[in-house]
Lab assay of single mutants.
Amino acid sequence: EPLWIRPDAPSRCTWQLGRPASESPHHHTAPAKSPKILPDILKKIGDTPMVRINKIGKKFGLKCELLAKCEFFNAGGSVKDRISLRMIEDAERDGTLKPGDTIIEPTSGNTGIGLALAAAVRGYRCIIVMPEKMSSEKVDVLRALGAEIVRTPTNARFDSPESHVGVAWRLKNEIPNSHILDQYRNASNPLAHYDTTADEILQQCDGKLDMLVASVGTGGTITGIARKLKEKCPGCRIIGVDPEGSILAEPEELNQTEQTTYEVEGIGYDFIPTVLDRTVVDKWFKSNDEEAFTFARMLIAQEGLLCGGSAGSTVAVAVKAAQELQEGQRCVVILPDSVRNYMTKFLSDRWMLQKGFLKEEDLTEKKPWWWHLRVQELGLSAPLTVLPTITCGHTIEILREKGFDQAPVVDEAGVILGMVTLGNMLSSLLAGKVQPSDQVGKVIYKQFKQIRLTDTLGRLSHILEMDHFALVVHEQIQYHSTGKSSQRQMVFGVVTAIDLLNFVAAQERDQK
């Protein structure tokens, strides 16, 4: 057995438009009618409502009807409940999964919650491996369901041993009777949507819809739904939504950006999952974080739909894509998950301010006199920076000697690579993860907040409520011999709460 199987392995699926269902090699399930009293909570997966979006479509000038398939009504709160249950049931049916076995899954959280929910009911041990950027709410729900959680670096490539995929496979090879159901490759993922989600949409719309818009992560949702719609409703256009920084969209030119990270969760990847059939997507749109969270908040405030950030991405694209539809036509959007997962993220004004998705003037509360002053007023001194090749031991000596707790790590040209902190280095040394002679590049981390000289002290204040420091950066445009230009970030300084307090105190003292 291989040590790991690539999540982007070539698909062996034989589905073709027009091929009889009787030739399918898979076990198919028909939607079942729910009894009045459910035998367990797993029976509350599927049969989610279709809700008309009344205000947002009109606000953006849509002539067509805009409908939302509300997947956050599933038992675990997301569309991923469907595939989690289906993968477990299919693994039980073919004898792969037996009582007492362990389920391991690399996930952005929602599939993990679905699997942990099913594992709690069915009696399996469950280990979820997820990147650090995923919300604390997801972690809390997983723990409450009895799952064990392993976190991995957000910026690790999918084929790196440190990625959530790599760590999951390492655990599988170490733990007896453990299984990775593997949402990236498992046919049960798109089949769950082909058999149930798509049929529900067709039934709820009486077979009449002209466009379907869905955000894409593993691709199982859009693949399964689109294949069924292509068979039953061939005139329906399928629109895929991919965040900026991901590479799922086609044509490839759409993916060209210097951005590699994004805040919206559960969609987009740096590889093409095996289950994603991009041939059934008629057109791709890219979405960005700001519009995703703005539209998610709009869905909550104006439509009462308590959905997550990827739902915002989907609707932001839908109001663009559906401009081509006329009166009497219908566009369906998939709202994948609930706001429950993001209470401390985009639902929080403070978080939105820190990330730059909300401006101070958007909030009406009274601010102190210094709130709208610029960061450049602080008069920061030149920063202490270190090269990635310097040793951890030497870096600790320098920081202690100069009285700093942290320093930016830059390359020879001064471009920011990340940050090192005294606390992080000492804990890594004590844990045996690094040696004093190791290069400081081994303990770089990139989960820090950046701020510009033109940003306000109010925004800085919000950042420092949650973080010990902020890195002050400025952009530099560099022209190359080819005539092309590129933008790079340079370090201007490091600012802490002490710097802000000293500035405010000094100004008030001078005024007296």
Rank of each mutant, 00 (worst) to 15 (best):
I239N: 01
I239P: 04
I239D: 02
D242S: 02
D242K: 03
D242C: 01
P243C: 02
E244N: 10
E244Y: 10
G245M: 00
G245P: 01
S246R: 02
L248Y: 02
A249P: 05
E250A: 08
E250T: 10
E252P: 09
E252H: 03
E252M: 13
E253R: 12
L254I: 05
L254S: 04
N255P: 05
N255H: 03
Q256H: 12
Q256W: 13
T257Y: 08
T257E: 03
T257R: 09
E258C: 15
E258N: 14
E258D: 12
Q259P: 14
Q259H: 13
T260M: 12
T261D: 04
Y262W: 06
Y262E: 02
E263V: 06
V264C: 07
G266M: 01
I267P: 07
Y269F: 05
D270N: 03
F271M: 05
F271W: 03
I272M: 10
V275I: 06
V275H: 00
L276V: 08
D277R: 03
D277F: 01
R278K: 10
R278A: 01
T279Y: 14
V280P: 09
V280T: 14
V281D: 03
V281P: 07
D282K: 14
K283W: 09
K283T: 03
W284T: 01
K286T: 02
D289L: 00
E290C: 11
E291G: 06
A292T: 11
F293I: 03
F293P: 01
F293C: 03
F293R: 02
F293S: 00
F293E: 01
T294Q: 12
R297C: 00
R297V: 00
M298H: 11
L299T: 04
I300S: 04
Q302V: 08
E303H: 07
G304I: 00
L305V: 15
L305T: 00
L306N: 01
L306F: 06
L306E: 00
L306R: 01
L306Q: 00
L306V: 02
C307L: 05
G308W: 02
G308I: 00
G308V: 01
G309V: 01
S310G: 02
A311K: 06
A311D: 09
S313M: 04
T314Y: 07
T314Q: 12
V315C: 10
A316W: 11
A316S: 06
K320M: 12
A322S: 07
E324A: 10
E324N: 11
L325V: 05
Q326G: 13
E327Y: 03
E327N: 04
G328M: 08
G328T: 08
G328S: 13
Q329V: 05
R330M: 12
C331W: 02
V333D: 06
V333M: 14
P336V: 04
D337T: 01
V339P: 05
V339H: 05
V339W: 04
R340V: 06
N341R: 01
M343Y: 03
M343W: 00
M343A: 04
T344S: 04
T344K: 07
T344Y: 03
K345S: 05
F346S: 04
L347N: 01
S348Q: 07
S348R: 11
D349F: 02
R350K: 14
R350F: 06
W351L: 02
W351T: 00
W351Y: 02
M352G: 00
M352F: 02
Q354K: 12
Q354D: 11
G356R: 06
G356P: 04
G356I: 05
G356N: 09
G356T: 06
L358P: 07
L358E: 09
K359T: 15
E360A: 14
E361L: 10
E361P: 06
D362K: 14
T364L: 09
T364N: 05
T364M: 13
K366C: 15
K366N: 14
K367I: 12
K367V: 15
K367P: 12
P368E: 10
P368G: 10
W369T: 03
W370K: 01
W370F: 14
W371V: 09
W371T: 11
W371H: 09
W371I: 09
W371Q: 09
H372K: 05
L373P: 14
V375P: 06
Q376V: 06
L378N: 03
L378G: 01
L378A: 12
G379L: 07
G379V: 15
G379W: 12
A382I: 11
A382V: 15
A382E: 14
P383I: 10
L384H: 09
T385R: 12
V386T: 11
L387G: 12
L387Y: 11
T389S: 09
I390F: 02
T395G: 06
E397G: 10
I398N: 13
L399G: 03
L399Y: 14
R400V: 12
R400E: 09
E401T: 06
E401C: 15
E401Q: 15
E401P: 13
K402Y: 07
K402I: 11
G403E: 10
F404A: 08
F404G: 03
Q406H: 09
Q406K: 07
Q406L: 06
Q406W: 02
A407D: 04
A407Q: 11
P408E: 02
V409Q: 09
V410Y: 14
V410S: 11
V410T: 14
V410M: 15
D411V: 11
D411M: 10
E412G: 13
A413D: 02
V415R: 10
G418E: 04
G418P: 03
G418L: 02
M419K: 13
M419T: 15
V420R: 00
V420I: 14
V420P: 02
V420G: 15
V420A: 13
V420Y: 15
T421Y: 07
L422Y: 04
L422P: 05
L422I: 14
L422C: 15
N424Y: 04
M425W: 09
L426R: 12
S427D: 09
S427V: 06
A431Q: 09
A431M: 10
G432C: 04
G432K: 13
G432Q: 03
V434T: 12
V434C: 14
V434N: 10
V434F: 15
V434W: 04
Q435D: 14
Q435P: 12
Q435T: 12
Q435Y: 12
Q435C: 14
P436F: 13
P436H: 15
P436W: 10
S437D: 04
D438R: 13
Q439W: 14
G441I: 12
K442R: 15
V443L: 07
V443Q: 13
I444Y: 13
Y445E: 05
Y445N: 08
Y445G: 04
F448K: 07
I451H: 08
R452L: 14
L453Q: 12
L453R: 15
T454F: 11
D455M: 12
T456Y: 13
L457F: 12
L457C: 07
G458H: 08
G458S: 15
G458N: 10
R459T: 12
L460R: 02
S461C: 14
S461I: 04
S461R: 07
S461Y: 05
H462L: 14
I463N: 05
E465T: 03
E465N: 12
M466P: 12
D467N: 13
H468Y: 08
F469D: 07
F469K: 09
F469L: 13
A470L: 14
A470G: 08
L471D: 03
L471Y: 14
L471N: 13
V472Q: 15
V472K: 03
V472T: 13
H474L: 08
H474D: 13
H474C: 11
E475H: 10
Q476P: 15
Q476W: 03
Q478V: 06
Q478L: 13
Y479P: 04
H480L: 10
H480S: 11
H480N: 12
S481E: 12
S481V: 12
T482P: 14
G483S: 15
G483I: 06
K484R: 13
S485A: 15
R488L: 13
R488Q: 14
R488S: 12
R488F: 14
R488N: 11
V491A: 15
F492N: 12
G493R: 09
V495W: 11
V495F: 15
V495Q: 09
T496G: 08
T496C: 09
A497F: 04
A497N: 12
A497P: 02
I498F: 08
D499T: 06
D499N: 03
L501Y: 15
L501M: 13
N502L: 11
F503V: 15
F503D: 03
V504T: 06
V504P: 04
A505S: 14
Q507T: 05
Q507L: 09
Q507I: 13
E508C: 12
R509D: 12
D510P: 12
Q511D: 11
